[in-house]
Structure formats: structure tokens, C-alpha cells
Simulated scan of single mutants.
Amino acid sequence: MLESVFPDKELTKEQQKVFERIETFIKDNLNGSKKAIFQLNGDAGTGKSIILTKLFLAIEKRAKENKTNNYFLVNHPELLKVYQENAGEFSELRKNRFLRPTTFINQSHKKQTKADVVVIDEAHLLLSESVNYNNFTQKNQLEEIIKLSKVVILVFDEHQVLKLKSYWSKNLVDQVIKKFQAKFEEATLMTQMRMQAPRKVVRWIDDLTDKLQLDQDLVSKKDYLTMSSNYDFRVYSNAEKMYQALKKKNSEVGESRIVATADYPSTLDGKKHYVNEGQFHLPWDQYNYSKVTWAQKPETIDEIGSIYTVQGFDLQYVAVIIGPSVSLSKDSIVVDPDKYEDQEAFKKRHEDDLSDLHTAKKSIILNSINVLLKRGVQGCFIYFHDRDIYDFLNNQR
């Protein structure tokens, strides 16, 4: 998990080419009169964070010589822990340069300072409107960061937008960039690097979340359906059997966890809240106050992780419970936002910029499923609350 964002990880040829493009972009624009923005696109698991961490290490190595003031931002507390821990392994990196966006913005305004280069991982998690609860009072975080920087390098994946208060689309990002009349370049990573899976498995996931279609090209086993001998991809009819299989994998290879869509009630009130599916009964993860990430704690094999726990991370095996908001109708997937329990994700926006709120909510649910299903390096197990989906996949309908 940690090595996936370690700064000295070797890059592929595709990643190296993009890395060199961004380095050139920074050098060409650092002393320019205009704002400069480079946008790195790519699906979950294509290696965007690997490029960013290696890039920031290179920037910081030159910081003293160039007298630059640089920051690495990520709006994800679990990921921030990893970046700060990794920073301690390199003398050139300082932990106080790895911040949450709100901290950077408020700190910069208070001290009346500006940055030279700001790198933003998971920019799709930036707030796109003011949220007093998060101590952010300006209009949107991307705009504020651009104001406070000379060069901005950001990672963006429209398919990983998970909340209305951080609702981004390519159009909204383009509007912010256009407002500054900035110099702009972008690159897109295409190769899936996390999942050691054949293309047909990745396509199965994308067809489910992008097209609401299910490929029935699955072979029936004793307890589950499968479609690949190279990647351990399974669809279970029984959540408890799936969990027991996952625990076995965890004892064999480590860092294997069960997660679920936010279709089951949970409140941050200090009490345990459970996901129940037949004989399966486990509590949601608790707020993680320690510096150790959730999946690195041995005891969390007995908890259920959420999208907020595992987004951006690698797991060896992931088991995903897809809850009641997803069902089958006439051989197609149907998504019902009214059955989604994550009220924070659907908290009403102040900005009246969404023409179709129902579609936006459905996109958030499908994005979360896509992200969860793409966590596993060696394998992915799936359980659907709606038994009709399993029966359809098993050609029993």
C-alpha cells in the first residue's frame, strides 16, 4: 500500500514520458508572468499519484537552489498520513509541505504568502463551494489554490467525484482554468497499473458503472462465479462466505479488506454501526485517529471500510458489498439514490450549477462502486444485495 505512492518507485515508459512533460512545463513557466496549470488525467490505478510523488521529490531537491516555496496537497486524511510518513524517508522532503487544501489556503491568507509550485493529488476531492464546517469560506478550492500559486499540477478523475459539495465535472474544471487565462497543458494515463487483471475484468467493472450493463461471461464455481484465471475475480451469492474467503487471503498475502457502498446506516457518534447481509454481520470502520492507515491495522480485517477509507489506496484483495441502491430491472442495472445512506455525500449544494441533481447523485454512487472495485492488486470479490443480479450472472433468470 505505501509503496504505491513512494517517491523513488520506478516509472513505466508511459509514466516517465508524462513526468518529463510536467517537469519541462514547470521549468518553462515558473518565472513567467501568467498562471500555469497542468492537469493529469487517468482512471483509478493508472499511476497518477506515483508521478506526483516523484515529481514533488524532484521539485524539492531543487528548492534551495531555486529558492522556491512548494506544497503538496491532498483532501484525504488517510492519504495525507501516507505522504507525511513517506516524507520522513527523504531528507529533501518536509512533512509540513504536505497539507490539506483548506490548511494551505487559510495559512497562505493569514501569512499573506504565495507558493511557487503546488501539486494537488485527487483534485476531484477539492471542495467546489464554501463549506463552513470544513473552515472553507471562499467559493471553491481549486480557484483559491490557483490564486495563491504560480504553477499548479493537479490530478483529476471525473469518475472519482464522491460528494455534491466537491462535485466536479470536466466542464467545471475548464471554467475555473479559463477564468485565469492560464497557460494550460494536460496528459492522460491509459494503462491500468494497480490491478494485475486482464482487460476483460476491467471492462466488466467499467460496463457495470458506466453503462449499467452486466457481462454474463462468468463460470460457476462451488460458492461463487468467476471469469479470470489470471486475476482472482469472484461474484458471491453469500456475503459471509465471501468474507471468510477474504480472511484466508489476508492471512496469506496481507492487506486484504472488506468494504461496502454507503447503503447501510452509519453515524459518527462514537458507537458501532453494522452492515447486515444474511449471516454476515460486521461493524463499519471507526474514525481513525492514529497515524497508521486503516488497512495497515491488523484488527481492521474485522471491520468494513468505506469509500472514504480506501480511496487512493492499494489492497492485495478487496471484497466489495454492493448494497440496496443497486438492483436489476429487465437485465439492466438500476440505481436508486433514495436508498443511499450517505447523507453527507448528497448534502445540498449552495451553488445552483447542477442541471440534473438526480443524475449527479447516481453518478456519485456509480463512481464510488468503480473506485471500490478497483482497489485489489491480486483479486476482487463482489457481493450484490440484490440476489437477482447474482442469478442473472449465473444465467438463472
Rank of each mutant, 00 (worst) to 15 (best):
residue 295 A to K: 11
residue 258 I to H: 01
residue 253 V to T: 12
residue 255 E to M: 11
residue 290 S to N: 10
residue 247 K to F: 01
residue 253 V to L: 14
residue 231 Y to D: 10
residue 270 G to R: 01
residue 213 Q to E: 08
residue 260 A to G: 03
residue 240 E to K: 12
residue 213 Q to H: 08
residue 211 K to T: 03
residue 310 V to R: 11
residue 275 V to G: 05
residue 239 A to L: 07
residue 278 G to M: 08
residue 224 Y to P: 00
residue 223 D to Q: 07
residue 226 T to A: 07
residue 254 G to Q: 12
residue 256 S to R: 08
residue 243 Y to L: 07
residue 264 Y to G: 02
residue 212 L to W: 05
residue 310 V to I: 14
residue 236 Y to T: 08
residue 208 L to E: 08
residue 232 D to C: 09
residue 288 N to E: 04
residue 250 N to K: 13
residue 236 Y to R: 03
residue 251 S to H: 14
residue 268 L to A: 15
residue 280 F to K: 05
residue 287 Y to Q: 09
residue 209 T to S: 12
residue 222 K to I: 07
residue 259 V to I: 12
residue 296 Q to F: 13
residue 203 R to P: 01
residue 226 T to G: 05
residue 232 D to Y: 02
residue 294 W to F: 15
residue 289 Y to W: 10
residue 257 R to G: 12
residue 312 G to Y: 06
residue 226 T to D: 11
residue 241 K to C: 09
residue 244 Q to K: 14
residue 275 V to Q: 04
residue 281 H to V: 04
residue 203 R to H: 06
residue 317 Y to E: 04
residue 249 K to Q: 12
residue 203 R to I: 02
residue 246 L to R: 05
residue 270 G to Q: 03
residue 288 N to H: 06
residue 286 Q to E: 13
residue 235 V to E: 07
residue 238 N to C: 03
residue 301 I to S: 12
residue 259 V to E: 12
residue 240 E to A: 10
residue 260 A to I: 00
residue 285 D to I: 01
residue 280 F to M: 03
residue 242 M to G: 08
residue 279 Q to R: 14
residue 252 E to P: 05
residue 250 N to T: 09
residue 298 P to R: 12
residue 242 M to K: 00
residue 271 K to N: 15
residue 278 G to I: 05
residue 234 R to W: 02
residue 238 N to T: 06
residue 245 A to R: 07
residue 252 E to F: 13
residue 257 R to Q: 05
residue 220 S to F: 06
residue 294 W to L: 11
residue 217 D to W: 03
residue 248 K to Q: 15
residue 267 T to R: 15
residue 252 E to R: 07
residue 266 S to I: 10
residue 264 Y to A: 04
residue 274 Y to R: 06
residue 258 I to R: 07
residue 255 E to P: 00
residue 278 G to E: 02
residue 231 Y to F: 15
residue 264 Y to F: 03
residue 285 D to G: 13
residue 232 D to V: 05
residue 238 N to V: 04
residue 245 A to M: 01
residue 293 T to L: 13
residue 263 D to C: 14
residue 310 V to Q: 13
residue 303 E to F: 10
residue 256 S to Q: 10
residue 304 I to S: 06
residue 308 Y to S: 13
residue 258 I to W: 04
residue 261 T to N: 08
residue 298 P to G: 13
residue 303 E to Q: 14
residue 240 E to C: 06
residue 218 L to F: 05
residue 281 H to F: 15
residue 292 V to W: 02
residue 268 L to I: 02
residue 278 G to S: 07
residue 275 V to L: 13
residue 213 Q to K: 11
residue 240 E to L: 10
residue 224 Y to R: 02
residue 287 Y to M: 07
residue 262 A to W: 08
residue 311 Q to G: 13
residue 310 V to L: 15
residue 204 W to A: 03
residue 241 K to S: 09
residue 278 G to H: 07
residue 212 L to F: 04
residue 229 S to W: 03
residue 220 S to L: 01
residue 290 S to E: 12
residue 224 Y to L: 05
residue 232 D to A: 00
residue 315 L to I: 05
residue 225 L to K: 08
residue 240 E to T: 03
residue 227 M to G: 07
residue 279 Q to W: 07
residue 233 F to E: 01
residue 272 K to D: 14
residue 208 L to P: 03
residue 237 S to D: 00
residue 256 S to N: 14
